[in-house]
């Protein structure tokens, strides 16, 4: 469903529920941004403005919160967001090989979105899964003990018609 910059009734409802937890509406800024991103994949300038109005705070202040956190996306991302760990355990265990394979398969560099709009590849700090290094997270699913071959299988699954969460 395409959403305009105006927040949908469902978004409003979820944000209001968060506001109810705090004495001040602006305290729900982070949760509000997460709600918007959950429904839209990212937070556009229009949604940011709408959310700031709903939370009764200056839009710049909300932008400060949104841009502080690197997992709040202020630019459009692909349908699947791949977070590839670049911390030390994963690096020792060959995350650079995984990175190369991902870039090669998707035809993008880290930080970019594939031409078909399906994948965004982002490096991330530790995913807290070091015993299964190297590791990455796709959407909200974590995958460990990876090799370039396993990467291929993962991407195949996601790229197949009617693939995972189709």
């Amino acid at each position: 469903m395409h959403l305009g910059p105006e927040l949908s009734p469902l978004e409003r409802q979820e944000i209001e529920a968060e506001c109810a937890h705090y004495p001040e509406r602006r305290a729900a800024a982070i949760e509000g941004l997460k709600v918007v991103q959950k429904h839209r994949g990212w937070v556009s300038d229009g949604s940011l403005q709408a959310l700031a109005e709903l939370l009764q705070m200056p839009v710049g202040e909300l932008e400060g919160v949104a841009t502080f956190y690197n997992l709040i996306f202020r630019q459009p991302v692909g349908r699947h967001v791949i977070l590839l760990c670049d911390s030390v355990c994963c690096w020792i265990k060959g995350r650079d090989d995984l990175n190369r394979r991902l870039c090669q398969r998707l035809g993008i560099k880290p930080g970019e979105t594939s031409a078909d709009g399906q994948f965004t590849l982002l490096p991330t700090v530790c995913l807290g899964d070091c015993d299964r290094a190297p590791t990455l997270m796709i959407d909200h699913q974590q995958h460990g003990n990876l090799t370039p071959e396993k990467i291929d299988r993962l991407l195949d699954q996601l790229q197949a018609p009617g693939g995972e969460d189709g």
């Binding site: 710049g60 202040e61 932008e63 400060g64 841009t67």
Partner: peptide, 18 residues
């Protein structure tokens, strides 16, 4: 003032308006 903010973080911290 309500229109000057700290945006982003670390080396990218930016002081400006929306």
């Amino acid at each position: 003032g309500e229109d000057l903010h700290a945006l982003a973080s670390r080396n990218h911290t930016y002081f400006g308006r929306a």
